[in-house]
């Protein structure tokens, strides 16, 4: 099968998964005890007029499957209605926070790869040597350090003691130098554990691959050791890393809640915490749905990258 067809197949498979995500998100409000209207108004008493308008907005007078379809139709055009708590457009609220979270998660993910890949390679190639030992200790420390603690230590050291970076985000757009500088510490905080994880995973998968016969073949051909490692071994060793990376994204979003708190980062984590506290269900629903979709899309991307790296996957 060609790569193109494979990608199309994966996308075709992702569609029902995405629909599943929407069904789950939709059911979430209906699964709460009582009338869904209670959830939609955050379990507060509202005037009959408000209630009627919310019932109409969410089509609560229709059969449930029809409610779902109508809701899905709105969701497809990213229309989530208004929050009963803040009275604001839900998509606008979520839409401003999602980029911040994705930027942080993406930066942390890149950092994890930027640190984890070279370290993992060196550790595997020099395995048993001091570089390997050092990386092992560093990775253990990285995995064992709670990101809450790491974040605070970094913040106190570089923000307060040394004054190199701000403790709270600057008053600047997301895509600006000032913001990029500020994002360094949260990125390190969030990415460290993943970097350590990638290091160890890549090291062990490289070690397994280094013993493979094709590596001996490559060496016997007279290829440079660099080529053998970077071209032949790495691509194979990278496959498990790619697989885990998709799962790591969910992990990163989870970690983001803690990091967003320490670094006062206006991301989805904080929004969701606020919404859950206030039972702002439409916002929770939209947030969860968009995060779910992001994870599904990221995993689709992972599947495609995997197939690009490993032709056997394309069957």
């Amino acid at each position: 099968m060609s790569l193109g067809r494979y990608v199309l197949t994966r996308i075709a498979v992702a569609v029902p998964v995405l629909l599943g995500v929407t069904v789950l998100t939709f059911s979430f409000i209906h699964a709460l005890p009582g009338d869904p209207i209670d959830a939609l108004v955050g379990f507060r008493s509202v005037s009959p007029a408000t209630e009627a308008s919310i019932r109409a907005e969410y089509h609560l007078d229709r059969p449930i499957w029809e409610q779902y379809l109508l809701w899905l139709r709105d969701v497809l055009v990213l229309e989530f209605g208004e929050s009963p708590i803040t009275g604001r457009n839900v998509m606008a609220t979520v839409g401003r926070r999602l980029p911040a979270t994705l930027a942080l998660g993406g930066a942390a993910w890149l950092l994890a790869l930027a640190i984890g890949v070279p370290t993992g390679i060196v550790a595997a190639v020099r395995h048993g040597g001091p570089a390997d030992e050092l990386s092992r200790i560093a990775a253990l420390a990285g995995i064992a350090t709670p990101n809450f603690w790491l974040g605070l230590v970094l913040l106190l050291l570089f923000g307060v003691r040394l004054g190199w970076v701000r403790v709270i985000p600057p008053d600047a757009p997301l895509a600006s130098l000032a913001m990029a500088k500020f994002m360094l510490l949260p990125t390190i905080t969030l990415g460290t554990a993943s970097a350590a994880f990638v290091t160890r995973l890549l090291r062990s998968s490289m070690l397994a691959e280094l013993d493979a016969t094709y590596v001996r073949t490559a060496r016997a051909k007279g290829l440079r050791e660099r080529t053998v490692i970077l071209k032949h071994v790495l691509r194979n060793a990278f496959l498990p890393v790619v697989t885990i990376t998709g799962l790591q994204l969910a992990f990163l979003i989870d970690g983001a809640v803690v990091v967003e708190r320490i670094f006062s980062w206006p991301g989805m984590g904080r929004l969701l915490v606020r919404s859950i506290l206030q039972r702002d269900y439409p916002v929770i629903q939209a947030g969860v749905l968009l995060i779910g979709v992001s994870i599904v899309l990221a995993n689709l991307l992972v599947d495609i990258v995997y197939a690009v790296l490993d032709p056997r996957i394309r069957y």
């Binding site: 493979a212 016969t213 094709y214 073949t217 071209k231 032949h232 194979n236 490993d310 032709p311 056997r312």
Partner: peptide
């Protein structure tokens, strides 16, 4: 096994 599975 002698051939690298990910290259032509």
């Amino acid at each position: 096994a002698a051939l690298n599975p990910v290259y032509t």
